[in-house]
Amino acid sequence: MALLTKAPPRPPAAPPGRARRRDRGYLPYLIPGVLLFVVVIAIPLGMNVAISFTEWQGVGSPDWVGLEQYRTLFADETFWISFRNNLALIVAMAVVPTFLGLLLATALFDVVSKRHPRTTSTLRAAFYLPQVLPAVVAGVVWGWILHPEYGSANALLRFLGLDSWTQNWLGDENTALLSVMAVLVWIQLGYPLVIFMAGLQRVDPELYEAAELDGASWWQRLWSVTVPQIRPEVFVVLLTCTIAALKSFDKIFVLTRGGPGGSTNTPSYFSFQNFFEKANVGYGAAIATVLTAIIVGLTFLFLRAQSRREP
């Protein structure tokens, strides 16, 4: 990160008595941050876990039911389908953008950036633009484009004489999830692209020259020089995009509301439905708790894998 100043050698440690006094002097500075954390994150998190052990409609007093919500949850087909859909969203938001982003970033970096630096930054900006939009607005844009009657997607197909290809993209169980996935790729692609291009500037050009001397093809260079060199970036992108995919609420809310027939439902949206539409608060809390456990567990695994690769 270019923003970091270089660390100077540390001064010798102060004697323990003094250090402790100095230590305490800084404690008041923690108060606002810790207070906000406790009120907005720790307490609600604890409450949510507690609610997940109850049957509660949001009014009156909750009834303690122990693990009953979780038992129902693991036997609930809707829940499993929402998870399968979430895997599809991870493919669309993490796997495909990482792969495409890698290809585009290397192509831009190798082929264009040295000769046309202005073109490179314009192209990068073009790919990044969907990332700056509120997800909701991206949803409004695509909800309109994919509309079965007046949308541009079907109009384009009719214009090309492909009338039989027209679909109710977001309203048909067979195409809704794929359509949502395509929109997510469009939204997400700029993010890995920009990160990878920043990472590529760090790679020593001599490595490429050496690979070229060895007669490596473009593909071989990509996999054996580029990817290992920018592995930290690849890890960060995969992790952050996977977590973002697990939290997909706004795009689903705007594009499909989880439908048709639950074919684009996600755990995030499913918990929202139970909280606010079905007044089944205990069940919603159980879904949210499981989702959180998965996100924390995944992060832990990712970080462990990363620290193993970089001894």
Partner: peptide, 29 residues
């Protein structure tokens, strides 16, 4: 800068807070 004792734990807790999906906070909030 203050290097308060236990700072690594505190930083880890803030990182974890950053991961929380809003779904798990929204109803209590």
């Amino acid at each position: 800068i203050g290097r308060i004792r236990g700072r690594l734990w505190i930083v880890a807790v803030f990182l974890l807070a950053n991961l929380m999906p809003q779904e798990v906070l929204v109803y209590p909030l």
